[in-house]
Design a protein around this nucleic acid. Structure first.
Lengths: 188, 188
DNA sequence: CGCAAGGTTGAAGCGCATCAATGTAAGTGG
DNA sequence: CCACTTACATTGATGCGCTTCAACCTTGCG
């Protein structure tokens, strides 16, 4: 789905997608990953067109609501307005955290913290069990999200695997040593 | 000003400030620059505490409004709600553009596009004349904004100056060759 | 004057990019 | 069922962009 003006606001019901910005020369930046429950953009009801577009990562089921309807609902219900603003805040804070990650962290830290952020968001949706969760990302998509080459993403992820921090099997990721992974992410 | 819960939402009236995130080991990331007319955070009225803090760059004059008052005003006026959401969108889109800059661009592109973005925002405020505008940033602040070392920022900015793209005199920046600067920024 | 903050410059090294080749698994058509 | 293709993961060799460390310079100011 490209970034044209839309009549509707969409919400992911099932599957993964991502917001992508494309530079004029073709370079791609994955701005954020969309998990079940996420709006394609928390504020899309209020803007003409998006500066990015949305791409499916897996098969995606999604729902929609007319922008005009969403706007009037939000305007008419202070409690809903508050929830809506909180989603907007979350979107902002997530972007700011990624900014700090991209600006300040090494390759290993970037990838480790991306994994931890995804786990946190999936955990809030009850989609993590025993530190294991679905992980449908290709290494190219990870590379475009953290600003590295796919080749280097491969090397770093292999290192994380060989060091016994994570394990990946058939689209499923398991964190084998959470505290070491957090240290590798530069946290604490 | 740290990121504690605040009773008020602040708006910059005069001067420059910036939002800053700090990593646990002390690394800093400048998330965005605040120019006259910017809210410290477009959504600060709706959240408990900020994930970042705000630092002054120059002397800053600012105003404030009680969060509760701002919330009720926004909730009570659909037109104001729309304006408010548009500020939130702008904040988001700016963050996304910086994400793409940090993830995909070279040092020269990062710095050139930062300069162009600042000029664009200042121009919208009528603060640019003959491609010249106030530029109070230290090289360290630029470095923390684009994710480079101050040393390298210095080299790149010197190159931009020696190449005749920009000129800096006493806190004032002039763009000498706009189209070459845009090309250096990787645009078009 | 003497100090502090910031700008400038050089030398050396590392982290990641780049280029290129090979491996591997799933899908497709004959 | 096998030849072929396509997509993605893996691995090695080489090089560059940026970091790091360190010195020195400039400016403003008590």
């Amino acid at each position: 789905m490209r970034g044209e003006a839309t009549e509707d606001t969409f919400v992911v019901c099932e599957g993964w997608a991502c917001r992508v910005a494309r530079l004029s020369d073709g370079r791609r930046q994955v701005l954020s990953f969309l998990l079940p429950g996420d709006l394609f953009s928390a504020v899309s009801a209020f803007q003409q067109s998006m500066a990015f577009h949305v791409e499916a990562i897996t098969e995606v089921r999604y729902g929609s609501i007319k922008n005009a309807e969403l706007r009037s609902k939000v305007a008419g219900d202070p409690h809903l307005l508050d929830s809506f603003m909180k989603m907007c805040i979350a979107e902002n804070n997530a972007a700011y955290q990624r900014l700090a990650d991209l600006g300040q962290r090494s390759a290993e830290e970037k990838i480790a913290s991306l994994i931890l952020q995804l786990m946190e968001r999936l955990g809030a949706r009850g989609m993590v069990h025993n530190l294991t969760f679905e992980f449908p990302l290709r290494q190219l998509q990870i590379a475009d999200a953290v600003g590295l080459t796919p080749v280097h993403v491969n090397r770093v992820m292999n290192m994380l695997r060989l060091s016994g921090l994570i394990d990946i099997q058939k689209g499923s990721l398991t964190i084998l040593d959470l505290s070491r992974l957090q240290r590798a992410a530069g946290l604490k």
